[in-house]
Design a protein around this nucleic acid. Sequence first.
DNA 1: GAATTATGTAATATATATGTTACAATTAGT
DNA 2: ACTAATTGTAACATATATATTACATAATTC
Lengths: 67, 67
Amino acid sequence: MENKVKIARTQVNLTQQQLAEKIGVTRQTISLIEKGKYNPTLKLCLDICYAVNRTLDEVFWVERENS
Amino acid sequence: MENKVKIARTQVNLTQQQLAEKIGVTRQTISLIEKGKYNPTLKLCLDICYAVNRTLDEVFWVERENS
DNA sequence: GAATTATGTAATATATATGTTACAATTAGT
DNA sequence: ACTAATTGTAACATATATATTACATAATTC
């Protein structure tokens, strides 16, 4: 599940640790989401968006795979 | 967790059951998401969006509560 | 208004998102 | 190169998203 969390995070100069603390989540969770190995919850996606000043579409939208 | 799933679903003339089947999920899951009692997974949010031809922001975005 | 269809919801079970702890690997600063 | 900071990741524990089954209510249709 690819996303743009890392890009958005670095653009607001936050480390994984800092973002995690802002959101109230673990650094590992942020790391795994950035690596596309987690399928995060909507609430967590929203919290990430709020923390990096972006919207869901900007950070988490991916086009449907045609199949 | 309020959202616009029900609006988007009815606009494409799908019943909860039909939407659930399209996505490969249970009708109850759709019902509870629409009632705001579930905190769905990103993948499920995306699948719903694909099924109703909307984007994440259109269906699931909510402004940050100021606190 | 009875019958069918659509929706709400509860109890319990299962799958999976996230936490915890720990350590390795990578990057940045000196 | 050494050190510190940042990030990747593994094993296991816990919380919670979703499934299953079942039944109740509301809305349509005849």
